[in-house]
Design a protein around this nucleic acid. Structure first.
Lengths: 230, 230
DNA sequence: GCGTTCAAAATTGTATACAGTTTGGAATTC
DNA sequence: GAATTCCAAACTGTATACAATTTTGAACGC
């Protein structure tokens, strides 16, 4: 009998979280010795985990210089959101063909159950988790493991941006319900009718709207970075 | 001054080729010591490269049992082709908006230049390289690095299947020009007109047609595997 | 024959040592 | 003071050793 999760897996998960949250700053060089001490593992398993993250696009690697955090640029953000459109919209098209009535009903129930929580959520992380969860469940109905895998990767790398977006969204809409859940409802309504084109258009518009908002939110956050005094 | 390509990179590239071509049989366990000898590197850099391939979906990993080749099942093939549709079609939609006239002209020229070579190609590998190259160039016009990155990953894992498909295609169409280039031409014509919907439909049909053919070709290849005598 | 047991062999997991390379900064020159 | 040289410190790259785990197959009992 063996532990199902290896040490490298554990280190990998910890690093993935750190990289997703930009615990490493963009382009920052990663010191292996220091990091291995923090994570309680030697450099060998650490480097194995780091290599996985390079392959997944969370980090970069330079020969003889080691590992670096991925950069964070406007075009990178644009690319990630466009990739989400590609993956999520095609998954939705498949879901419209394939999802069982029971699965769709379950997703509707989930959305309704979340609605009050979504409006009362106090933590940004909580809001994000609910948003991500809806999109993930939607993709799951496609039955396509590759699309889900890709989406999970994109979500990990875009997470931090969404957090910035949500933060601004909440500040703007202060108190009022976040307008996003209605977009989810529109997608779901079309899915219920198995109207793929309408569903896909609704989802595309939703993601592209968020992309615009997120880009703007990041722009503002950046500009504030260089003018720290209020 | 440093070599631009590290040893791990070299080992990784070699392993990727092997995994793409199923030099490791599906589900086969990989012996690290034997492999490290073949590749002329110790187990440390070998395992770093293997971990990258796990993250990319070429291999799997089990705690205390090591690395295994990815399985090869009908649903896996279906998933990969569907993911290609998602990525390539959205990339094409973006290309219709963004590609410069010069880029489109260059791609047209490329297609025309390839046509005679495509018809006379003697090696399957050569045919595949040309097919992959057209699709990659098309995706490049989107300007989206993430979509290109995902496509490169999918292409690596699907390569072997396409080879089986091309082999059967050539056997069936013995001597005659492979019908595939005309599908590429249809996509390109719509791109020239910046008619995204038509272009995307043409590309989707093309890839789905290949998926059906490839699935069938793999089915036949499998059935022959278990009845080796003619 | 067919499953069990068990120990030897094979294999993986990781810490560590050390060689090779890069980095940072002091000394030097202009 | 700005650029250059150079050396020591820091860091990365990888082979290797050994512990931990799995695999293999021979011996045994039914």
């Amino acid at each position: 009998m063996s532990k199902r999760e290896s040490n490298v897996d554990r280190v990998y998960e910890a690093l993935r979280r750190m990289a997703a949250d930009f615990a490493f700053k963009p382009d920052q060089r990663i010191n292996e010795s220091a990091l291995s001490e923090v994570l309680g593992a030697s450099r060998t398993p650490l480097r194995e985990a780091l290599n996985r993250l390079v392959a997944e696009g969370f980090l970069t690697f330079q020969s003889n210089r080691g590992f670096f955090c991925r950069p964070l640029t406007p075009s990178y953000i644009l690319d990630l959101y466009e990739a989400r459109v590609a993956v999520e919209c095609e998954a939705l098209r498949l879901s419209c063909q394939r999802a069982s009535e029971a699965e769709i009903t379950a997703l509707s129930a989930y959305l309704e159950r979340m609605e009050p929580e979504y409006e009362s959520a106090t933590e940004l992380e909580e809001l994000l988790a609910m948003d991500e969860s809806f999109h993930a469940r939607l993709a799951q109905l496609s039955g396509n493991n590759e699309l889900q895998r890709i989406l999970r990767n994109l979500n990990g790398r875009i997470r931090y941006i969404r957090l910035i977006d949500l933060k601004r969204m909440r500040e703007e809409a202060d108190g009022r319900a976040p307008g996003d859940i209605s977009a989810h409802r529109r997608v779901l309504e079309a899915l219920v009718k198995r109207d793929a084109d309408t569903a896909v258009e609704a989802l595309r518009n939703h993601i592209e709207k968020r992309r615009e908002q997120a880009t703007e939110a990041v722009r503002i956050a950046f500009s504030q970075l260089y003018v720290p005094e209020d």
